[in-house]
Design a protein around this nucleic acid. Sequence first.
DNA 1: GCATTGACGAAGG
DNA 2: CCCTTCGCCAATG
Length: 134
Amino acid sequence: MKKEFKKTPSAKKTPVESARSLTKEYTFFENVYQVVRQIPKGRVTSYGAIANYLGAKLSARMVGWAMNAAHGVKPRIPAHRVVNRNGMLSGKAHFATPTLMEELLKKENILVKNDVITDFKKIFWDPAKELEIS
DNA sequence: GCATTGACGAAGG
DNA sequence: CCCTTCGCCAATG
């Protein structure tokens, strides 16, 4: 069941359109991956922020869903830098080990307390603000 | 093809 | 302030 993604030469369509054509050439996943990979070390963002950046803020779940498929993706996806709006490690259960996510964050000087990122607001990285559409 | 599920989020009680 | 409900939309049973 190895489903390989077709490489997208470039995003011809708008993010919104891409998001609505998941089953087509361009996948919503790739957009998500690209954003996630650009999250600076030591910073985090939320599913909703990514969704918002992609023009589908009402579909944050799709972002989370996309991450679910990001496990075996070649260029490693720093999924540990993506949490829900509360800064909670909602996806830690999906990592290799339940503690892996927290460990990875810790390595980047991100403190985690009770599955919640401390000072989440401070290290929050909003792609819509910080990232320019290339 | 309908019903349920989700690594979410906002709104309402 | 905590809990429940609803919306979003693709995937899965």
